[in-house]
Amino acid sequence: MSGTLHTVFFSPTSSSKKIARAVAWPLSQALGKELCEHDLTFPQGRNKSLHCTSDDIFLFAFPVYAGRVPRLLNSFLAQLSGGGARAVVLAVYGNRHYDDALLEAVDTIQEHHCDVVSAGALVAEHSLTPKVGTGRPDNQDLKNAEEFAHHAAQAALSGHAGPVTVPGKRPYKDLPPAMDIRPKTSDACTQCLLCVSQCPMQIISEDNPAVVGQGCIRCCACVKACPEQAKFFDQEPVLKIIGMLEEKCRDRREPEFYTV
C-alpha cells in the first residue's frame, strides 16, 4: 500500500462524518491507500496540523454554514500542507443550498498545494429543524456517495490536473453578522452532561449545563444529544430561519458530484 487517505471532517451532529466514511472506505480500497481519520469536531482536533505528500489523498467533509465553510475551520485549513496530494471535497448541507461553500473549500484547499480532482454536495437533515432533510443522509444518499467514490478514484488516477469546476461565485457571499445566540435549557434537564460532551465549542458548563458561554455556533449538537429534549432555541432570529426553511426547503434535493 502506497500513501494514506486522510479523511478529515468537522461533524457536530455526525452527518458529515457519516458521509465522509461512506466515501472514504471504497475510495481507499480503489486506490490502495491506508485510511487515517482526522476529526475536527472538537478543539483538540482542530489545533493539530496536517502534512500530506504527493502519494496521499486528502478527503475533506464539512457542514455548510450560511452558504460558506464554517469559520472555525479557517485556522486548521491555514496550516494545511498539501504536498501535492490529490483531494476530494464534500460539502454537506441542510436541503436549502450550499451557495459558495463548495467553491470556497476547493479554492482554499487548492491554495494549500492539494490538487482537488473531485467534489460533491450532499444533503443532511437540517440542524435547526428535523422537518427539512428529514432522516438524511439516507440509504440512497450513502449508496450515491459510494458510487461517487469510484468516480473520484478514477479522477485521482487519471493524471488530469485540478481544480475541479464546481458551482459558486467569487467573491463568496457575505457572512451574516455574528449573533450571540445560545441554547436555552428547560427544567426537564437531568444534568446528564451529554450536551457538555457533544458541544464542539466546549462552552457548556459541567457544573451547570444550563450555563452556556459565548461562542455558540448553533450547530444544535446539544439539542440533538439531549435525551430529555431540554435544550432548545426559541429566539426570534432562529425561529424566522426555521419558518423559512420549513416553508421553502422541504422538497427533496439530490446529491451533486463533480470530477475533473
Rank of each mutant, 00 (worst) to 15 (best):
G3Q: 07
T4A: 10
T4Y: 12
S14M: 12
S15H: 15
V23Q: 00
P26D: 01
L27T: 04
L35M: 13
C36M: 14
E37T: 12
E37M: 11
H38P: 08
D39C: 12
D39A: 12
T41D: 01
F42C: 03
K48H: 12
C52L: 13
S54P: 03
D55S: 15
I57Q: 03
L59S: 06
L59V: 11
A61T: 02
A61W: 07
P70H: 10
L73M: 13
G84P: 01
L90M: 14
A91F: 08
Y93E: 08
Y93V: 14
D100E: 04
A101N: 08
L102A: 08
L102I: 13
V106S: 04
I109V: 15
Q110C: 06
C114D: 10
V117I: 15
V117L: 10
S118D: 04
G120E: 00
E125Q: 15
P130M: 03
P130T: 03
K131M: 14
T134G: 05
R136N: 03
L142W: 11
N144L: 14
F148N: 00
A149P: 11
A152M: 08
A153Q: 07
A153R: 04
A155C: 05
A155S: 08
A155I: 06
A155P: 05
A155L: 02
L157T: 09
S158R: 11
A161R: 15
T165W: 05
T165N: 14
V166K: 11
P167C: 06
P167S: 03
P171Q: 04
P171I: 05
L175I: 02
P177Q: 02
D180I: 10
I181R: 08
P183Y: 04
K184V: 00
D187N: 10
T190Y: 01
V196E: 00
S197Y: 13
Q198H: 12
Q198E: 14
I203P: 09
I204H: 09
S205E: 13
P209A: 01
A210T: 06
Q214T: 14
G215T: 12
G215Q: 10
C216T: 13
R218V: 02
A221D: 00
A221E: 00
C222S: 05
C226E: 01
P227H: 06
A230W: 05
K231Y: 00
F232Q: 10
I241N: 06
I241H: 11
I242Y: 12
I242Q: 13
I242M: 15
L245N: 15
E246N: 02
E247H: 14
K248Y: 15
R250I: 15
R250G: 03
D251Y: 03
D251L: 12
P255A: 09
